[in-house]
Nucleic acid binder design. Structure first.
Length: 256
DNA sequence: ATGGTCGGCAACCGA
């Protein structure tokens, strides 16, 4: 089973990447974040030739999540249980005996703003969500853009970036709070080196070429799945590609 | 080096 996550930063403007990628890589599951498209405008026509099932929840300008699957997904739901107004940050589906939870964790904006506390609270509520809907001895995948770097080796300049809303003590503790429910970071299970990133800020000149990146996208698996993960890798964008995203594909293969 | 990015979508906001 091949599982993938990708922050698209607008699905419609990334179709030239996503559609060929589905055709050539043929994942079983592709989780998308920041689709930035309302449900009524979802690009069904462009995706139809791929043959993938699509479930999604979007908003007019921001957020938006989708799960694309080869087989028909079951038990589809959106949002945290108590949060119908911010449903476009979480999509859930059961695929091939595995529960998939795709999240776009709030970025947090600034540590002094209410958005930051909202981010921390959101992660606490996500832990409660897993307690309610799943068990750590079952096959569960939590994946997506978590807007959090777990460790120093997950950012290009840990001294300078310490205190950023995606790399600070509060966020590390909140992320650990969810992981302690029963998740293994499957990329780190296979690779312990610094310098492997999934995000390079557009605003930084030549960030990708200089590898000034962050590891903000994850595939987290419960132990029964993590021990069946054979490979996990970051599929870096081609530098020559017109309109790349600032995030990239994170791929994991499981023997299930 | 006194600027430098995107996307949505129509004036800025969010990342």
């Amino acid at each position: 089973m091949k599982i993938v996550t990708f922050n698209a930063n607008s699905l419609r403007s990334r179709l030239h990447i996503v559609v060929p990628w589905l055709k050539t890589q043929a994942p079983d599951v592709l989780c998308l974040q920041e689709t930035k498209v309302q449900d009524v405008d979802f690009p069904h026509e462009a995706l139809r030739p791929t043959g993938y099932h699509c479930v999604f929840r979007g908003e007019k300008k921001y957020n938006g999540v989708a799960i694309l699957t080869k087989s028909e997904p079951q038990d589809v739901a959106f949002g945290l249980d108590d949060e119908p107004l911010d449903a476009a940050r979480l999509a859930r589906a059961r695929v091939g005996g595995c529960l998939i939870v795709n999240t776009y964790v709030p970025q947090g904006q600034d540590r002094e703003l209410p958005a930051f506390q909202y981010k921390l609270d959101w992660l606490v509520r996500l832990r409660t969500y897993f307690e309610r809907h799943a068990r750590p001895d079952e096959p569960v995948l939590w994946m997506g853009d978590l807007n959090a770097a777990r460790e120093a080796k997950d950012v290009y300049d840990p001294e300078r970036l310490w205190g950023h809303v995606c790399y600070c003590r509060e966020v590390q503790e909140a992320l650990k709070g969810v992981m302690d429910w029963g998740f293994v970071d499957v990329f780190r299970q296979h690779c312990d080196e610094p310098g492997h990133y999934t995000f390079w800020d557009y605003r930084m000149p030549k960030a990708l070429e200089r590898n000034l990146g962050w590891r903000l996208d994850y595939i987290m698996a419960t132990p029964p799945l993590a021990q069946r993960c054979r490979r996990c890798w970051i599929d870096r964008p081609a530098r020559a590609l017109a309109k790349p995203s600032d995030h990239t594909f994170l791929v994991a293969e499981f023997d299930i």
